[in-house]
Design a protein around this nucleic acid. Structure first.
Length: 164
DNA sequence: GCCAACGTTGGC
DNA sequence: GCCAACGTTGGC
């Protein structure tokens, strides 16, 4: 099966790329949107690559790469009354919410801020940039993934022109 | 803090 | 099944 590419949002105040770096891997808990859940449940495979995106940050930015390291399993927080993602409607015998495990791959040498992505002609079709889009887990193409990784590497910093 | 856009809930 | 009201997301 071909490797696929994703973008996963997290508010850095809740869980940042540095948290993932520290933890090495984590369950992507707390997703409470069916479309995002379905990507995790039905489409994400071990080895898939994901851009780690900081939402509600200043500026919002792609900050690194994670890799799917475990197929979807029931999200434990849906059963935990002390957790802010607790879902009292869910019976333990029949989980509603699932999450994959992801592991840390890299933190970009520099963040790739949202306005920079917006400004690029070759990223216009990204789900992230569509008006009103707020999916917290979304597919990206291999091409988009590579462009953003390149922008995040130091060599590509500030989009210096090739010729002068 | 504001607010546009989206998703969910619940009355009918 | 419609749709108004409400809650949430997330950029600005």
């Amino acid at each position: 099966m071909t490797k696929r590419y994703w973008l996963m949002k997290s508010e850095p105040s809740a869980y940042s790329i540095d948290d993932l770096k520290r933890d090495k891997s984590t369950l992507w808990e707390g997703v409470r949107n069916y479309q995002a859940r379905n990507f995790m449940m039905k489409e994400m495979k071990v080895g898939d690559q994901a851009l780690f995106y900081h939402s509600n940050a200043d500026p919002p930015a792609a900050v690194g790469v994670a890799e799917v390291s475990g197929l979807a399993e029931p999200d434990p927080t849906q059963f935990d009354a002390s957790d802010c993602h607790y879902d009292p409607k869910v019976a333990p015998s029949n989980p509603t919410w699932y999450c994959v495990r992801v592991k840390f791959k890299e933190k970009f040498a520099r963040e790739v801020p949202l306005p920079e992505m917006r400004a690029r002609e070759d990223l216009q079709s990204m789900v992230l940039l569509q008006k009103g889009s707020r999916l917290s887990i979304q597919p990206v193409t291999g091409k988009e993934f590579k462009i953003i990784c390149d922008l995040g590497s130091r060599a590509a910093a500030i989009g210096r022109p090739k010729s002068r």
